[in-house]
Computed example of a mutant assay.
Amino acid sequence: MKINIVSKRVELTNSIREKIENTFYNLERYLSDDTDVHVKLDVTKRSQKIEVTIFTKNGTIIRAEDSKDDLYNAIDVVYNKLYKQIRRLKTQLINKNKSNESIRFNNIDKYDDINIESDSIIKRVKKFNLDKPLTTEDAIMQMDLLGHNFFVFRNLDSEDLNIVYKRHDGYGLIEQI
């Protein structure tokens, strides 16, 4: 497992680095050895924020964030969130009779996160590789893991671009005509 740490408005001390590495290496038993973990730290006057994104080899993205007065507490809270998400993912994969090998994933796709100028209406652009088609159920699972309200994916059955989204009574699907 590779952990990449980026800090913004805070000096990355050895004790913070050790806390992050020791905490998130505990997830290594659930993830494959070549999984990428991106950690972003940001400190403002009121809070200290940590964002952790895990990119698995099969393209699944697991993400959690938290803001606290104490960075060490925020690290522990984010770890607990990620652990719960990984457990939920493992349970879903077992229930769908997919091989999970203790949630060791393969074939991670490239992910880019690009910030555009602040005076633009668009504040962030994300690029995803849509070459790997998904079932609707897998897309819903990925959307839930990311904590988003919608998810764009290439449908396994039709090879068309589809969108799943959360509704007040469940989920919705937008298909291409």
Rank of each mutant, 00 (worst) to 15 (best):
D109K: 11
E117F: 07
N97C: 07
F150C: 05
R154C: 04
A74L: 00
M141N: 07
T136H: 02
N73F: 03
N80Y: 02
D34G: 07
E175Y: 04
K45C: 00
N26E: 14
T44Q: 07
V39Q: 08
H38N: 14
S47V: 09
L145M: 13
L130M: 15
E21V: 14
Y72N: 15
T56H: 08
L12C: 13
K166W: 05
M143E: 06
N73H: 05
N14G: 13
S67P: 01
N149S: 11
Y72A: 09
N58L: 01
N149Y: 06
S32L: 10
D112W: 01
N80W: 01
I75L: 06
L31N: 08
K45Q: 07
R104C: 14
D131V: 13
V164D: 07
K57C: 04
F151C: 04
K81D: 14
L31R: 13
F128Y: 15
L71A: 01
S102E: 15
N4P: 01
L12R: 10
Y165V: 04
L156A: 12
K90S: 02
V164R: 08
I140N: 03
Q85K: 13
V37E: 00
S32G: 13
T23F: 05
E11P: 10
M143I: 08
Q48A: 12
S47L: 02
N149R: 11
N106D: 02
T56P: 02
E18Q: 11
T136V: 15
H168K: 10
D36M: 09
D113R: 14
N115Y: 06
G170C: 03
V10C: 03
S47I: 04
I62A: 02
R63H: 04
K96H: 08
N95M: 04
V37N: 01
Y83D: 15
S67L: 01
G147L: 05
Y171K: 01
D66R: 06
I86S: 07
V6D: 05
